[in-house]
Amino acid sequence: MDDFFNNWVVQVRKGVLEHRVLRSLAERERYAYELVREMAAAPGLGLSEGTLYPLMSRLRLNGLVASRLEESTSGPARKYYTLTPEGRQTLAAMDHFLGELNRPEGPKREGGSR
């Protein structure tokens, strides 16, 4: 049973992680290092920082987030992520789906609205 549960948790985490990242960026623009450290420290997710950089790159390639570099006086340029309008729509669809999923009577329909 433990193996099964652990495997299920891994699957859930994978599914939820993108939602968490998009949710976090929906609040405000975030500095990559800060975002990665915040996600890695989030209880329950159990992710390493290294896993998040490929995820962010993937989200950017999918057009859900945008990045920009800002010069820093104390080190390398800082990379900032922000949610694109497309990312905002996706997040809304994800929110809607998760809301429906958690209803006692179950979701009204399958899939997102994108």
């Binding site: 990559a32 290092y33 950089y53 490929p54 962010m56 790159s57 993937r58 950017r60 390639l61 990379k79």
Partner: peptide, 24 residues
């Protein structure tokens, strides 16, 4: 990184920057 659907050069650069920030 490429297999995960990411831009490998970007991820390597991000990890370099992360390394620098940690050193700092």
């Amino acid at each position: 990184f490429e297999a995960e659907g990411a831009d490998a050069a970007e991820v390597v650069a991000d990890l370099h920057a992360h390394l620098d920030r940690e050193v700092e």
